[in-house]
């Protein structure tokens, strides 16, 4: 007998005008029924990507030991040696856009009014005519395993921290060319006038983690435990446990970019 893992993706588009995310056409994880998932399980196939239009990117048979966990984290992380490997799981359906995360981030990391390291996107879905469904989507730097920003930086001002996998900035090396901003699939970078350099989320590495705090400012401030932060190299960390929840769809944003983002989304 074989089993399978289902890895789903949700696309999103940002509207620069109102920063509202709309994509009625995208495949939403909730649109995949248990029955469909079971059918896939029976087929013994692994779906590693499901595009917005429903194109299956790859199918591969997998062994029976890999039971019903929604997402194969170890396989996704293969080839990395970060310890701890920081990441975040976002329990999207619990977000109510109170923006306490945003406030905490700005205060902790001295983020100016004109920029952000994390924000909340909004998407109004219309599952049936006349019914409006509001979805709030927290976004931040995805600390990609294959970060396009790092690849394009001409001065190596942005790098992946060899210990933790956090995508960090070395401000004095930044020449402000903004190539990384254009390369980022997640719009997670801004130009900080005061620093005269690009600034971005670093999981509060300098402001909190290095001082012994276990959580980022946004995760600590969230009243609904939407942002579950921790070491994904540790199978017993909270985010690792969440990703192992059976029959829960897990997705990442813009998987087609090939960046291998390390912020995971689920409705839990």
């Amino acid at each position: 007998m074989t089993a399978a893992r289902v890895y789903l993706s949700a696309n999103f588009q940002t509207n620069e005008e109102d920063r509202t995310v709309r994509n009625e056409q995208s495949v939403r994880p909730e649109a995949i029924t248990d029955e469909e998932r079971r059918t896939f399980l029976k087929l013994g196939l692994k779906i590693t990507g499901l595009m917005a239009g429903g194109t299956i990117l790859s199918l591969a048979p997998i062994g029976e030991d890999e039971a019903e966990a929604a997402f194969d984290l170890q396989n996704y992380r293969r080839g990395t040696n970060y310890k701890p490997h920081y990441g975040m799981v976002i329990r999207q359906n619990h977000c109510v856009d109170c923006e306490k995360c945003k406030e905490a981030c700005k205060k902790t990391n001295n983020v100016p009014e004109e920029g952000y390291r994390t924000t909340i996107l909004e998407r109004i879905l219309e599952p049936e005519p006349g019914v409006k469904d509001r979805v709030f989507m927290p976004v931040l730097c995805n600390h990609c395993l294959n970060p396009p920003c790092v690849r394009v930086c001409p001065t190596k001002a942005t790098t992946k921290d060899p210990k933790t996998g956090i995508v960090i900035m070395t401000y004095h090396k930044c020449i402000g060319c903004k190539t990384c901003m254009a390369a980022c699939p997640y719009n997670a970078r801004y130009f900080n006038e005061e620093k005269r350099a690009i600034d971005k989320c670093n999981f509060c590495l300098d402001t909190r983690l290095s001082k012994g705090e276990k959580l980022t400012a946004c995760a600590a401030a969230c009243p609904a435990n939407v942002r579950v932060f921790g070491d994904l190299a540790d199978p017993n960390s909270e985010p690792s446990k969440l990703l192992r929840k059976p029959d829960k769809a897990v997705w990442v944003l813009r998987p087609e970019s090939g960046a291998k983002p390390f912020i995971f989304y689920m409705n839990d």
Binding site: D18, R19, V96, D97, C98, E99, E114, G115, Y116, T119, I120, E122, R134, F136, M181, N187, Y190, F191, N192
Partner: peptide
């Protein structure tokens, strides 16, 4: 959310610059 609150107060959403 904050977005809905700002919409109701006619302020629209705050522009987030720098992007």
């Amino acid at each position: 959310g904050v977005k809905g609150y700002e919409r109701m107060n006619g302020g629209g959403e705050k522009k987030e610059g720098g992007h």
